[in-house]
């Protein structure tokens, strides 16, 4: 079975780039944007959900994103309850009920057209 990362559990302590500590459920879009602005290596990119399909294993989903200005097509296979942070909205997953059940993390339904926070490397050549 695929394990889910522990940091999505409600109450998990997250350290922002400026050192500030916040609970995972309290994070805002601005926290990611400001942390990326400080980072010398990472920058925020917007990844738009283009398709959501069933994955190879039960509960798995394949999400196709269009990433950044170049609209690079990227597919990721994750468990349906894996949360993504949607700009201006917050945590969202394909199975928000399961996410809430597993992590006690309030979660919206991830839909085609949602714009998720993602990272890329700065100055990649």
């Amino acid at each position: 079975p695929v394990s889910l990362p522990p940091f999505f559990m409600r109450g998990s302590i997250i350290q922002l780039a400026d050192g500030e500590l916040k609970r995972v459920e309290d994070l805002k879009t601005e926290d990611f944007i400001q942390s990326a602005e400080i980072s010398s290596e990472l920058k925020i990119d917007s990844s738009t959900v283009e398709r959501i399909d069933s994955g190879q294993t039960p509960n798995a989903v394949v999400i196709q994103f269009s990433v950044g200005e170049l609209k690079a097509q990227v597919c990721v296979e994750v468990l349906g309850e894996y949360p993504f942070f949607v700009f201006g909205q917050g945590w969202s997953s394909c199975c928000p009920d399961r996410t809430t059940q597993l992590f006690e993390l309030s979660c919206a339904k991830l839909c085609v057209g949602d714009v998720c926070v993602s990272l890329t490397l700065r100055g990649m050549r």
């Binding site: 940091f7 780039a17 500590l21 994070l27 990472l42 990119d45 990227v74 942070f85 990272l119």
Partner: peptide
């Protein structure tokens, strides 16, 4: 004796998927 439990602190970027490198010029 009760040993103090340390609370794990996770870096902000671990929550964000790393999707694709931006290919700038």
């Amino acid at each position: 004796n009760v040993e103090p439990r340390s609370v794990p602190v996770f870096p902000w970027h671990s929550l964000v998927p790393f999707l694709a490198p931006t290919q700038s010029d």
